[in-house]
Write a protein that binds this DNA or RNA. Structure first.
Length: 510
RNA sequence: GGCCCGUUCGUCUAGGGGUUAGGACAGGAGAUUUUCAUUCUUCAAACAGGGGUUCGAUUCCCCUACGGGCUACCA
């Protein structure tokens, strides 16, 4: 295996939104592949026709594109092992299942869903396996002629793996080390469903073999079915080609118990999906990190550090750095509770560290969504530079930058009105006059003049500084007041001052 | 219930037979910012419990507890 080219795959089911944990699995696959100059394959596991959702596959493709995790082979770009959709590979699976039946490692089972439900109710710890298979309707329990008759009559049936008795199946997990299972404890999983589609168990083994996968990363929830997969690799005669397994720790709910789910996002007020997902059946829109205003770099960064670190105190990583530094040995074994506060910190860090030019498109889109069309490119750049340190997510740019382009619609009157005096009205009238004769506005210079004027009027600087801010911005926030004045220009500043003063001196509303 | 996996501050984690058990987020206090945020300084905060092994264990082993996963003709 040492000289084989590294090939990994992510194999999602197109059933809905793409979960945080899913993206992290993609990421670890991708990082490992790129680190070893290997290939990253996207395979769509659409074997469950009842759960198939229109548009979900394209959505997954879009998510990967947004994250910058492009697949080398996929249904979209194709590749030497096409097709990459399991539904289109349906015909291939049956022969392997039949081969297993012939070898005695699998068998036909004719039990109906109702019969099995009844068994499960009747027998407390019912498992379709060693203990009960002899008493059920399958090709092990039934005489050959009956099985043939059933088959000839096209009786609906599945093919199940026949778990061997009294064996120990063990393997070396790249993350967890030695893991072992007793075959007596594992049930006879369905390999081929009545509709002819393979289950995950068969499909994953067949396709990983056919697609020459060398390393298989998946969530820890798959660990209990690993012995089935191991045995399949052996029975199919492919054991020497089996990929190395790595079961990734789960991402857990921040509060209570269990793995993070879509519902937790709604309950706790944060996204769980990479991008918003609209479910046409329920007419429900589940928000995503992209729409909340996370930079993809931030999203990738936070996912990478959920269960992995490079051993140093570095926390901010670019994708290239992650590729360079990633190693499976440094992936932790335990599940991690998702912390949205930390996620927001990553977002803020990435916005702060991003260049103005790289932020421009996203910011102008945010502003445009709010009806602000920016045509002064230089002004936009100055604005972004002035405020990016105070934005946590992209939409914050509207709150922090909107007033540079539009007059405030309302003022934080509580901050100024109670302490408003005629002297202040007078001060701002004079300041407007002073401002009006300026030819160029320079922030420092103007601030000095503003302070000097306040002094001659017998006003404390602080008593007029805050009102000026509220006049221009609408509230108690934003960068230095005179930087704002400089950017707004004198006409706009005077206009805003005059307009605001009217409200400051107006009698309180009844 | 059965099987499997796991367990260091509230959270994400570093570390590892002898350490003041380190960092980050969140929280507290302060400085800077005549706003808010940033930034800086600073405080508080952890080795689940019990047995071994050992001169010495948080680190290695075992047990218990707790947490999580799986237990579908879903992935």
């Amino acid at each position: 295996m040492t000289d084989k080219k590294v090939r990994v795959r992510f194999a999602p089911s197109p059933t809905g939104g793409l979960h945080l944990g899913g993206v992290r699995t993609v990421l670890f696959n991708y990082l490992f592949a790129k680190k070893h100059n290997g290939d990253f394959i996207l395979r769509i596991e659409d074997t469950d026709q009842t759960r198939y959702v229109e548009g979900a596959e394209q959505y997954i493709l879009d998510c990967l594109a947004w994250c910058g995790l492009k697949a080398d082979e996929s249904p979209e770009v194709g590749g030497p092992y096409a097709p990459y959709r399991q539904s289109e590979r349906k015909a291939a699976y049956r022969q392997y299942a039949e081969q297993l039946v012939m070898q005695g490692h699998a068998y036909y089972a004719f039990d109906t869903a109702e019969e099995l439900d009844a068994k499960r109710k009747e027998i407390p710890n019912f498992q379709y396996g060693l203990a009960y298979r002899e008493s059920l309707r399958n090709s092990i329990a039934l005489p050959q002629h009956e099985v043939d008759a059933l088959l000839d009559a096209h009786t609906p049936h599945v093919i199940r793996i026949k778990m061997p008795a009294d064996e120990t199946v063990s393997f070396n997990d790249l993350i967890r080390g030695h893991v072992s299972f007793e075959t007596n404890q594992v049930d006879d999983k369905v390999l081929l469903k009545a509709d002819g589609m393979p289950t995950y168990h068969l499909a994953v083994v067949v396709d990983d073999f056919l697609m020459k996968i060398t390393h298989a990363f998946r969530g820890e929830e798959w660990l209990p079915s690993a012995p089935v997969h191991l045995l399949l690799w052996e029975y199919l005669g492919w054991k020497t080609d089996m990929p190395q397994w790595a079961h990734l720790p789960l991402i857990l709910k921040p509060d209570g118990h269990g793995k993070l789910s879509k519902r937790d996002g709604a309950r706790l007020g944060f996204p769980v999906y990479a991008m918003s997902w609209y479910d046409a059946k329920t007419d429900e829109l589940t928000p995503g990190f992209r729409e909340l205003g996370f930079l993809p770099e931030a999203f990738i960064n936070l996912l990478a550090t959920l269960g992995w670190n490079d051993g140093t105190e570095q926390e901010i990583f670019t994708l290239d750095e992650l590729i360079e530094k990633f190693s499976l040995e440094r992936v932790s074994k335990a599940g991690a509770k998702f912390d949205f506060e930390k996620a927001k910190w990553f977002s803020a860090e990435w916005i702060k560290r991003s260049s103005v030019s790289s932020l421009k498109l996203a910011v102008s889109t945010i502003l445009a969504d709010k009806g602000i069309v920016v045509n002064d490119d230089a002004k936009l750049e100055t604005v972004i530079n002035l405020i990016k340190d105070r934005c946590v997510v992209l939409p914050d740019f509207y709150q922090q930058a909107g007033y540079f382009f539009d007059q405030p619609k309302e003022y934080d009157l509580n901050a100024v009105k109670p302490k408003w005096t005629d002297a202040k009205t007078d001060f701002f009238k004079e300041f407007a006059i002073l401002l009006n004769v300026e030819t160029t506005i320079e922030a420092h210079d103007l601030e000095a003049k503003f302070k000097a004027l306040a002094e001659t009027k017998g006003l404390k600087v602080g008593d007029v500084m805050l009102p000026l801010r509220v006049m221009l911005v609408g509230g108690k926030f934003g960068p230095h007041v005179f930087d704002i004045v400089a950017l707004l220009g004198k006409a706009e500043t005077i206009s805003r001052m005059e307009k605001a003063v009217e409200q400051f001196i107006a009698p309180p509303a009844p």
